Simulated scan of single mutants.
Amino acid sequence: MTAILTETLTLLLIEDDDGDAFLVEELLKQAVAPPRIFRARSLREARQKLTPAVQCVLVDLNLPDASRLEALEGVLAVAAPHTAVLALTGVSDVHVGVSAVQSGAQDYLVKGDVDARLLARSIRYAMERKRADLAQLKLVQAELTAKENARLESALLPDPLLRTTSIEHLTRYLPGSGGTLAGDFFDTVQTPDGAVHLVIGDVCGHGPDEAALGVALRIAWRTLVLAGQTGDTLLRTLDTLLRAERNAPEIFTTLCMATVDPGLSHARMRVVGHPPPVLVRDGVVEVVDGTPSGPPLGIFPDAEWSVIDVPLGGEWTMMLYTDGLIEAAVGEPSGSLGVEGLVDLVREHGGIDLDRLIRHVGRLSDDLAVLMVRRRGP
């Protein structure tokens, strides 16, 4: 009866006995599409011939330089994780075949009980089981990655520590077009004196390392604010932390810090190489003048940042954002929104409506994080 192998496979047969090897090769010649077979007589020779082109390995568990599961372990060490492995045992070693499957082989065969159809079916089964194992592994890895990303996002974008009901606090976060997590972060803390402290930052780059660095900076910022540290002392501490934790010297971080006084009518800002905040005061839309007030963190060890005093008045809205918002694609394929386009869009909308604003931006090339606080008049 014709063996069931309908595609031309590349197999490696590891067998020191010429008679057993001849039998396997003859049985596989009966397949609809006989496979290409390479033979090795020892584990050492097999390691030289086991290339990525090999789709399935048939390994005798009694080799001159390895016996029983030692032979299997030697093959798995080289073949894993992409190649199916089929163990060949003698009639008296059936229990060894079971142990081989438990140790990582996809199936086993007793050499004295093999015919062409059984051999072909076992090879196909071993390969399908290997594919299923790989698919399951990828699924588990994807689930773990999703959970880790969720934990990182939660740490990057925390709930505000805000007691006052006199201001409205809104945030938004959207991943970039690549869907990878980046180092955008924000936070809001109200200290016992009633002052409201805001920060939004962006670690350059994308991926879990940058996200983890953003988490570290965000937590450090909150801790320092709660401990009463503000201004240049806080920024220099963050700069030191960034230099200690980054995995490459070219990694830098931009951020914008604002402290709104307890009366909620005045703000002091430091814009650290970051895009300028947008303000709406008495219906007038503008960006904060004098930005940036200094370079990003992680570039100059002796950097200084000037303070920007911003009168707010009785009714105002302040929007801090990362550059993913102004770099969003608009108009021509190479066009981006830009700061002026953002201000024009806010004016067109008659104020800052975050959801409406985000709906109007185009495809994101970077993560987008927005933090908005609003104080309404009496």
Rank of each mutant, 00 (worst) to 15 (best):
A248F: 10
V110L: 05
D18L: 12
D344M: 07
D323C: 04
D366P: 09
G377E: 13
D261L: 11
T51P: 07
L23E: 08
V330M: 07
P277C: 03
D261Q: 13
V278F: 11
G341N: 09
D16W: 05
A211Y: 11
D17V: 10
Y321S: 09
V361T: 14
R172F: 04
R270H: 12
D232L: 06
L118T: 13
L242M: 09
D18Q: 14
E70I: 02
L12Y: 04
D367F: 03
H349F: 13
P192S: 02
L69D: 02
E148L: 12
L72V: 02
N247L: 12
P175R: 15
I200H: 02
A33E: 15
C256Q: 01
T145V: 09
I358T: 14
R236D: 11
D115Q: 05
L234C: 05
L27W: 06
R163Q: 14
W221V: 00
I14E: 05
T6E: 15
L61A: 01
E168L: 15
L61H: 06
I37T: 12
G214H: 07
L118M: 10
D193C: 03
G183V: 06
R347N: 10
V370I: 15
G263D: 15
D115R: 06
T322D: 03
L23H: 05
V196A: 03
K29L: 13
L43Y: 04
L264R: 10
L13H: 11
D367P: 12
P81T: 08
V287R: 06
K111E: 01
D107G: 01
S103F: 01
A211M: 06
L345W: 08
A116W: 11
S122Q: 03
V101E: 04
D367M: 05
H274N: 08
T223M: 00
G338Q: 10
N149E: 15
V343K: 09
G351M: 06
V287I: 14
C256Y: 00
S336V: 15
L342D: 08
D261N: 15
R359G: 09
Q190A: 02
R121S: 09
T233V: 14
L43V: 12
E340I: 07
D107A: 11
R131C: 01
P35M: 03
T2R: 15
K138H: 12
G183R: 02
L139A: 15
E348L: 11
G335T: 01
V373E: 00
A220V: 00
L213H: 06
P64R: 00
P277W: 05
L226Y: 00
G298I: 05
L371E: 08
M257A: 02
A267Y: 03
P276F: 00
P192M: 04
